[in-house]
Nucleic acid binder design. Sequence first.
RNA 1: GCACCCAUAGCUCAGCUGGAUAGAGUGUCGCCCUCCGAAGGCGAAGGUCGUAGGUUCGAAUCCUACUGGGUGCACCA
Length: 581
Amino acid sequence: MNIYTDIHALVVGALQRITAEGGLPAGLDLSNVSVEPPRDPAHGDMATNAAMVLAKPAGMKPRDIADRLAAELASDPRIATAEVAGPGFLNLRLAGEVWAAVTRAVLTLGGDYGRSTLGQGRRINVEFVSANPTGPLHVGHTRGAVFGDALASVLDFAGFDVTREYYINDGGAQVDTLARSVYLRYLEAFGETVDFPAGTYPGDYLIEVGEALKAEVGDAYVGQPEDVWLAPVRDFSTDRMMVLIRADLASLGVTMDRFFSEKSLYGTGRIEAALKALDAKGLIYQGVLEPPKGKLPEDWEPREQTLFKSTDHGDDVDRPVKKSDGAWTYFAPDIAYHFDKIERGYDGLIDVFGADHGGYVKRMKAAVSALSDGRVPLDIKLTQLVKLYKNGEPFKMSKRAGTFVTLRDVVEQVGPDVTRFVMLTRKNDAPLDFDFDKVQEQSKENPVFYVQYAHARVNSVLRKAIEAGIAVDDASLAATDLSGMTHPAEIAMAAKLAEWPRLIEIAARTNEPHRIAFYLYELAGLLHALWNRGNDESGLRFLQEGDPVTSQAKIALARAVSVVISAGLGILGVTPVEEMR
RNA sequence: GCACCCAUAGCUCAGCUGGAUAGAGUGUCGCCCUCCGAAGGCGAAGGUCGUAGGUUCGAAUCCUACUGGGUGCACCA
C-alpha cells in the first residue's frame, strides 16, 4: 500500500474524467502531475500541482482547473477537503480513515510494508569495495562497503533483482609487490633478517602469511630466483588476502554474491574480445595523445599507443588501452570486466568508487555506453572521505606510525550496527566525520541511539501491555478500532508512516540509501515527541490505565512505527535493539 | 590549465523527477522536569541557500559565467 500512488491515481483519473466531459482539452500530458506531502502541515496532508502544470498547455487559468478538480475529487471518500491555495495548488486533507488504513497496512504487511514494484524485477549489478587484495580493508573501504550494501538492499526492497559484486584487482603489478613482500616475510620466518625496500608492503599483517607459506611449502623457495616463486607466492598471497577481506566484510555483515577476478580476464581472450567489440564500432585506433595542459609530466614524450575513442561517448580525451610496450593498461581489463557484466544481461550497472577515483567516471561510462550501444545505464557513486575523530580531536592515520585504522578496528570498537548507521548519516558525496566517542553517545544528537531508542521504547510499551493482559500481537492490533486516532501528533506519525513507501522509491531512484537513515531519524523524532506529550497529557500515553481498548489503538500506532523502524534498519543492515542497556 | 564533487542558520548537515513562509541537530536565550524509560521537555531568536545572470507560472534544486574548498589528471592498479 502506497497512499501517494493511490491518490496520484485518483487525481489522474479525475483529470481524465474531466477531459472526457470536455472540461479540459484532450491529449494533455499528465506525466508532470505530482502528489506530494506539503512542507507546511497547515497546507493539508497532500498537495497536487495539477492545475499549475496543465494551465499553460490547456490554455486555462490554474484556478479554474483547480476548482473543477477539487469538485471531482471531493466525491471520493478518502478526500476530506480539497482547497485551492497559493498559485494554484490543490491542497488535500485526507479522511481519518486513511490514516487508520495506513496503520493497519503496516501491521498486516509487517516488514514488507513499503516494498515496491518500481524495479519490476529488472536486474541491477552493484559493484562495490573492490579493494586491491593487498591488505586488510580500512575505513575508506568501510564506507564504500556499507554504502554499496545498503544501496543494494534498497534496490532489492524496491523490486530490483540485485547482484552484489566485488572486483578483485589481482591482475596487476600491485599483487606482484604483495608477493615480494610476502616472500620477505617468508624468509623472515626462517630466521633471516630482512628489510623492506620502498615499494613493498611492510605491514605486520603479512607476517602470518609468510609463516603460512613456510608451513605450506617448507624451504622450497629459499634462495630461489624470483621467476621460480613469484607466480605461486602471488596466488597464495592473494588467496590469503581475499580470505582476510571476506572476513572483514563478514564482520560488517556484508556478503557478496560474486567475486570477479581480474586475472581471469587475462589469457582467456576476454580482454581481446572486449576491445574487438569496440574496434568493430570503429572506436579503437593507433594514435598519439596531446600532452596535458598545465604542468607537464617530466618524462613526457609523445608515444604512439592503442587508444579507445572515448570522446565519442562523452569523455574529455581518448584513453590508452595498451602501453607503448604492447601490454594492456589497467583500463583494458576494466573495459573487459564491464563488457562481461553487460553480456551477463544486466539492465543496469552501478559502480561504487572512492572519491579519489572520480577521474575514471567518464571513461567507464564511455566504455559501457559504447559496448552496450547506450542500452545499459551505468551509475557511478563516489563515496567521500571519512575523517576520524576521537574525543573531538582529529585522529590521523599513518601506516608508519601504526595508527592505520582498519575496518576491523572500527567494528571491534563500536560494533557493526553503529558503524553502518553512522556511515549512512551523510550523503555519499559529502565528507563524513566519524568520532569514535560521539557515535557511542546516548543522546539526541546521535542518530543511531535516537532511532534505536525509539524502537526500544515501543518494545517497552509492548512488554508493559502484555503484563497488563492486553493483546498486542500484530494481528490483534491490526483488527482494533482506530477511529479514536485523531490527535494531530498521532496523525502526523501515521502520515509519516504513509511516506515510507514513497521514500523507498525516491531512495531507489536516486541510489541514495542515506535518505532512509534520515527518514528513520525523523520518524523516531515523532515517536519521541508523542511520548513526551504523553508526559503532560495522560490521554496521549500509549498505555491507558484500565482501558485496554483505547490502549490497543494507541499501541497499534506505536507498534506500526517500530515495524517501519525495524524494516528500515534492516535495509541499512542494522539490527534493531529490543532494549537499551 | 582541464575534468569531476562540494558551497544552505554561529557550527555539523538534510532538503523529494523544479513547488507555497527553506528544515533538523548542536550552540545561544527564556521557561519547565514528583508523571508509560527526563541517557531531558516546551518555546524564541538566528538565512541576500557562495556571487552575478538566464530558463520557468514558480529555482536551494535546471543552464551559463565567476569566487572559494576538495579530488583526480598520458604507458602507475
